[in-house]
Amino acid sequence: MIKLEGLCRDFQVGDQVVHALDHIDLLIRQSEYVSIMGPSGSGKSTLLNILGLLDSPSAGNYWLDDISTASMNDDELASIRQKKIGFVFQSFHLVPRMNAMENIELPMVLAGVLPADRRDKVAAALERVGLTKRADHRPDQLSGGERQRVAIARAIVMQPMILLADEPTGNLDSQSGKEIVDLMEELNNQGLTLIVVTHDPAIGNRAQRMVRMEDGRIKTDIQ
């Protein structure tokens, strides 16, 4: 469960302070499917970065599963990212020199999981995204849709609670974009909290709950 209270994030740009997030209050329950939409500069990516613990708020509180993240140090934040949060990026962010299997393995490698314990989980994640046959292909040998599937498999291989997707279909044609959204919705149906940032209404409108942002504030929140 995610709970935000009076959350602010200010950026110093020159001698001006920009309020990227301006007193956000938000409650997202486990297994919810939320889309965050809004024009560029509305603060939706900043919000996602804070939800993913990649960035810290300037003010306000963020509770993740009833634990305040405010007092956590770098190591603790990393550990939570590792265990509870999966990321899907617009540009996939696959490591180009590694094949699909190695890319999916990466979170477990970083977590210090032994090779013998990794194999089955990688295989399961590959199967989950339907890429078992492409396991030894490098990113440049895969189509855009397949790359994003590898990225999703990597995001779920540690069995997180939350999947954060930042414009996951932005670099895809509409057909593979739709397939990617279908895949993420399936994962959501199995209990994964899904938060998608997008400016594409066709994607955003599919969510059960639509949060609309403007100028760092939540404008509408439609369940």
Binding site: G52, D74, K83, H93, L110
Partner: peptide, 15 residues
Amino acid sequence: SEIGLLRSLGAVRRD
């Protein structure tokens, strides 16, 4: 960007 990715996957600065 790879460093950013590693951090998002749970790598600490030390890693």
